[in-house]
Computed example of a mutant assay.
Amino acid sequence: MADRLAGCSRAAKHRGCGSNSGYGARRVVDRLRLPICTTPRRCLGPSNWILIAWSPMHTVYDAPAREPATLNLPFYGASFGASVRRFFRKYAVFTGRASRSEFWWAMLFQYIVGTIAGLVLAVVVIAVMASVILGADQTEPAGTVLKATVASTLVMVVGLGVFTLPLLLPSIAVTVRRLHDTNRSGWWYLISLIPFGGYALYVFTALETDAAGSRFDSEHSLPQLEHTAS
Rank of each mutant, 00 (worst) to 15 (best):
I116G: 11
W104N: 08
K90I: 00
V93D: 09
Y91F: 15
A127Y: 07
L119K: 05
K90E: 02
A117I: 03
S99Q: 06
V93H: 10
Y111K: 10
M129Q: 13
I112R: 06
M107D: 04
A98G: 06
V93G: 01
S131Q: 11
A92D: 09
L121C: 05
Y111Q: 14
I133K: 01
I116S: 09
V125P: 00
L119V: 10
V125E: 11
S99P: 10
K90H: 04
F94H: 02
W105P: 01
Q138Y: 02
L121V: 04
F103I: 05
M107Y: 08
G118P: 06
F109N: 09
S101V: 11
A122R: 03
T115P: 00
G118F: 06
A106D: 03
V123S: 10
A136Q: 02
F94N: 01
A92K: 02
S131M: 15
V120P: 01
I133R: 08
A106I: 05
V125Q: 13
A92V: 11
F94I: 06
I126E: 12
S99A: 14
A130F: 10
S131T: 14
G114E: 04
M129H: 01
I116M: 14
V113I: 15
A98T: 10
G114D: 13
T115W: 13
V120Y: 01
A92F: 08
L121P: 00
F109M: 15
A117V: 03
V132N: 02
V113H: 08
Y91V: 08
I126L: 11
T115N: 11
V93R: 03
M129R: 12
L121S: 12
V132E: 05
G114V: 01
L119F: 10
D137K: 06
L121I: 14
F109A: 15
S99F: 04
V113W: 13
F103D: 01
V113K: 05
V123K: 11
I126W: 11
G118R: 04
L121Q: 14
A130T: 15
A117D: 11
A98L: 08
G96M: 03
A117R: 04
A98Q: 04
V113L: 15
R100A: 12
V128D: 07
A92E: 01
I133V: 15
I112E: 04
V125I: 15
L108H: 09
A127L: 14
T115K: 05
G96K: 01
I133Y: 06
S101C: 10
K90W: 00
G118I: 08
R100D: 07
M129A: 14
W105D: 04
V128M: 09
R97H: 10
A130Q: 14
V124E: 02
D137Q: 10
I126P: 00
L108T: 15
G96S: 09
A98C: 11
G96V: 04
G96P: 05
A136D: 03
A92C: 13
W105C: 06
S99R: 02
V124M: 11
A127E: 12
Y111P: 00
A122P: 00
T95Y: 01
G135W: 01
F109E: 12
I116K: 05
V125L: 04
Q138R: 12
A98N: 05
D137V: 10
T95M: 03
M107G: 07
F109G: 06
F103M: 14
A127G: 03
A106Y: 00
V132F: 06
A117W: 06
I116T: 13
A136T: 12
E102L: 08
V120A: 15
